[in-house]
Design a protein around this nucleic acid. Structure first.
Length: 487
RNA sequence: AGCGGGGUAGGGUAGCCUGGAGUGCCCGCCGGGCUCAUAACCCGGAGAUCGUUGGUCCAAAUCCAGCCCCCGCUACCA
């Protein structure tokens, strides 16, 4: 059985999840469910990133210890993923003692490799935002966030010789053309690496809430190194059974702003440790909301839990993956969501099931006949799209089949048929519905299960996406998607 | 400034890499069909100088160059 290891980033727990977190996680869930449907042995990892100065400050402000504080937020994330039907296999936390232990082990290994050295780190620090900026990030020499004065901080840190890995990375990208995706992101990364790599300071002296740096205990390990390592500590690197079974990761899914860390720094760290890099990095785009950049100050942050409660988890999941090609940027609006829910989910898909099941329930003859509605389903195309992580294209193909099935109803006019002819039409339509329940499963698992139940069966595997003898007993249930008023 | 992406009917997109009738899809609009179904479904129609100028070519949305707009990213923010 082929294995498939997929991850989301671990999310920084300074706030509850917003639509961006939900998007990454839902997309990864869809891919994970797809591979389970294929029969792969899937390991789907998500989790939370819990170290850093900001967390400590937030905890203090809340009158809690950092650990109490992050414990509370980890639960918020787990609850959210439950509501969004995320089928993760393991939830990793960077404050977990096992993670911390393995991070130290890994960094110690880096240290012994000789690729760490002591140097001077310089950065522009904004006191009010408690954040470092690079020279280029500054706006008119002032803080790009708040516009206040920044001061140059110099500190002695341990550096990782990232520059040493420039050529190795470029060679790796060349030998593995599918490593960086989508394609248009690959050139961005390659060009930046070609332009030259600077070494990376991987310790902090000011940050107390973090993993201790073993060779020099006055430092903590830079949170990004801590965070990236979750992908292997969750597998119990180096000796765990899961590590042997699942590493290297098949795909790391994330938003584009952290592509650099995954495409450049992460493989370099792994090279240094003598380990295999992941097979694929997939960086998706960002959502604007009603045409504007989402931000707390504008007050347009979309809460995925609200959306799923209001329109159903499946409708929300569907919308996110249907509205924009996976990889691009796109715009979220409730109006657009309602339109897709009312037209594609209620009128096209839901109504198809409803009209077919209504006809089938009234019929007491034999449901059998010639296969007439199978080849309209482009299962090869869907498979190819899903395997290439073109989720948008896969959905488009699935809905072409929905349209073909609706057309078949209109063309065959089953309400005017009886006996064998009606049995034939119903056979084709019910098999089409059954097959649809399978291919829709990764995207809308609840709906898929409801359809299977109404068909008197269970959601099948990808292999069962072929027409066969229909033997189940149909019992119509409630409407799968009801229309809602816009606004 | 550097790097990258984009400008296709009222809106949104695909097509561009590997030139070949403006070809497709979704929403909206107009007309027809059907009556199993959630006023659902099916068919047809109107609507585009494919940002702009020039070039290559028998042929350009597609390739090349210039220009005009729009938008990202520029690494130690977690």
């Amino acid at each position: 059985m082929p294995k498939f290891y997929i991850t989301t980033p671990i999310y920084y727990v300074n706030d509850k999840p917003h639509i961006g977190h939900a998007y990454t996680t839902i997309a990864a869930d869809v891919i994970a469910r797809w591979h389970r449907l294929r029969g792969d042995d899937v390991f789907f990892l998500t989790g939370t990133d819990e170290h850093g100065e900001k967390i400590m400050k937030a905890a203090t402000a809340a009158g809690k210890s950092p650990q109490e504080f992050v414990d509370g937020l980890a639960v918020v994330y787990k609850d959210a993923w439950k509501k969004l039907n995320i089928s993760y296999d393991y939830f990793v936390r960077t404050s977990d003692p096992n993670h911390e232990r393995l991070v130290k082990l890994f960094v110690d290994k880096l240290y012994k490799s000789g690729d760490l050295y002591k140097g001077i780190y310089e950065g522009w620090y904004c006191v009010s935002d408690e954040t470092f900026f690079t020279q280029l990030q500054l706006r008119d020499g002032k803080c790009p966030e708040c516009g206040k004065e920044v001061k140059l901080i110099k500190e002695e840190d341990y550096f990782f010789k990232l520059s040493k890995y420039q050529q190795r990375l470029l060679d790796f990208y060349k030998e593995n053309p599918d490593f960086l995706s989508p394609k248009f992101r690959a050139d961005e990364i390659k060009n930046r690496v070609k332009a030259g790599l600077k070494d990376l300071s991987i310790t902090r002296s000011a940050v107390k809430w973090g993993v201790e740096f073993p060779p020099d205990k006055s430092y903590t390990i830079y949170v990004w190194v801590d965070a990236l390592l979750n992908y292997v500590t969750a597998l119990d690197w180096p000796d765990g059974k899961r590590f042997g079974e699942f590493w290297p990761a098949d795909v790391h899914v994330m938003a584009k702003e952290i592509n650099w860390f995954h495409s450049v720094i992460w493989p370099a760290l792994l090279f240094c440790a003598g380990m295999e890099p992941p097979k694929k990095i997939f960086a998706h785009g960002w959502w604007t909301v009603d045409g504007k950049k989402m931000s707390k100050s504008v007050g347009n942050v979309v809460d995925p839990i609200d959306m799923s409660r209001k329109y159903s988890t499946d409708a929300f999941r569907y919308f996110l993956l249907r509205e924009m090609p996976f990889g691009d940027d796109g715009d979220f609006s409730e109006k657009a969501l309602v339109t897709r829910l009312n037209t594609e989910l209620a009128s096209d898909l839901g109504n198809l099931f409803n009209r077919v099941f209504t006809l089938a329930e009234k019929f007491d003859g034999k449901i059998e006949g010639r296969v007439e509605l199978e080849m309209q389903l482009d299962i090869e195309g869907i498979t190819k799209s899903m395997d290439n992580i073109e989720l948008f294209n896969a959905l488009a193909k699935i809905f072409e089949y929905v349209a073909a099935a609706n057309k078949y109803v209109n063309d065959t006019r089953p309400w005017a048929l009886k006996d064998e002819q009606l049995g034939n039409a119903l056979y084709n339509l019910l098999e089409a519905c059954r097959v649809l329940s399978i291919v829709l499963y990764p995207f809308m698992p609840e709906t898929s299960e409801k359809v299977a139940k109404q068909l008197g069966t269970k959601v099948g595997t990808l292999e069962e996406c072929k027409f066969r003898k229909f033997s189940a007993k149909v019992s119509k249930g409630e409407l799968l998607f009801k229309k809602v008023d816009a606004g």
